[in-house]
Simulated scan of single mutants.
Amino acid sequence: MSPPRRPAPLPRIAPSPAAEPPYDEDRPTTDIPAMPPYVQGTLALSLEPETPAPPTGRPLIWGPPGAIPDERRLRALAQAVAEILSGRRPPASVSCHLTGRAQAELTRSGKIINSARPPRAGRAHISQPEDGVVEMCAVVDCGDRSRVLALRLERRGVRWLCTEFETTP
């Protein structure tokens, strides 16, 4: 014989929190920084002239005048160009590092590198044939096959700009 069953407990009634947000006078007074105004679908303009902020971080210039660019930055540029040539990055993403002619050529060339996985640029081999000119090449690993990417950079004022690029088909 089974023991007698106890009756099921009745549901308990618990107080619920207030459904409405507190009024301004109900909120605690703390110094909360003011949030900028929320603007949707329009361009927020400030009519007051802005004072230029001091430069922070690294400048866009690649080294002092006469110095060749850092190898890590050259490798990053080669990586970006390889990704553009494989169709994995838009050409406009490196437009600030290319001359107008090189940008147009890069956009016109389209997808040259066909690979199942993203390309990966190897170590950059750098040469300086004359003052103000740097030529570099890097082996780009595309999975099933490797390619070579060559870039020519020239100093224009205080910036290094890519003027030519070439890759194996």
Rank of each mutant, 00 (worst) to 15 (best):
E154L: 06
R155P: 00
P37Y: 11
G132S: 03
E135V: 15
E154F: 05
D26W: 10
A76V: 11
S115R: 13
V133Y: 05
D70E: 10
Y23G: 12
N114M: 09
P21S: 09
L60G: 10
V139I: 11
P33F: 10
D24A: 13
S109P: 01
V158K: 07
L43K: 12
Q40H: 15
R145P: 06
R117A: 08
S93H: 03
E105K: 10
G110Q: 10
R145E: 14
V94I: 05
T107A: 14
E25L: 14
A121S: 10
G41W: 12
T163W: 00
R155I: 08
P119V: 09
E50S: 07
S127D: 05
A19R: 13
R58D: 02
L151I: 10
P22R: 04
G143L: 06
S86F: 06
L106S: 09
T107D: 09
S115C: 15
P21Y: 05
C137G: 02
R117K: 07
L153N: 01
W160A: 03
M136H: 00
L98R: 06
A92G: 10
I113A: 06
E48L: 13
R75D: 07
P22T: 01
V133D: 02
T56Y: 00
R58C: 03
L74E: 04
G63C: 08
C142L: 09
V81T: 12
R155H: 03
V94L: 13
R89E: 11
R89T: 13
L74Y: 01
S95A: 15
L85E: 03
P90F: 14
V39Y: 01
R147H: 07
R88F: 07
S109R: 13
P129A: 03
H125L: 15
P119I: 10
Q79A: 13
V94K: 07
A104G: 06
L149F: 02
I126L: 14
R88V: 03
Y23P: 04
P91C: 11
A124E: 01
P52Q: 03
D144H: 08
A76L: 14
S115F: 05
P49G: 09
D141M: 07
A116K: 11
T30K: 08
I112S: 07
P36W: 04
V158G: 00
R108F: 04
G100S: 11
A18Y: 08
L47Q: 13
P59N: 07
A18D: 12
A34G: 05
H97D: 02
A92R: 13
V81C: 07
K111I: 14
I61F: 02
S127N: 04
D26P: 01
S146C: 13
I112T: 12
A78S: 07
R73L: 02
P17S: 05
R88D: 00
L149P: 02
Y38P: 03
T99Y: 09
V148Y: 00
I61Q: 08
E71M: 04
P37N: 13
A34Q: 12
L77R: 03
G157R: 04
L60F: 10
A53R: 14
P55L: 15
D141T: 10
L77D: 02
P54C: 06
A92N: 08
R75F: 08
A80K: 07
I61P: 01
A102C: 13
L74C: 08
D141G: 10
T107M: 12
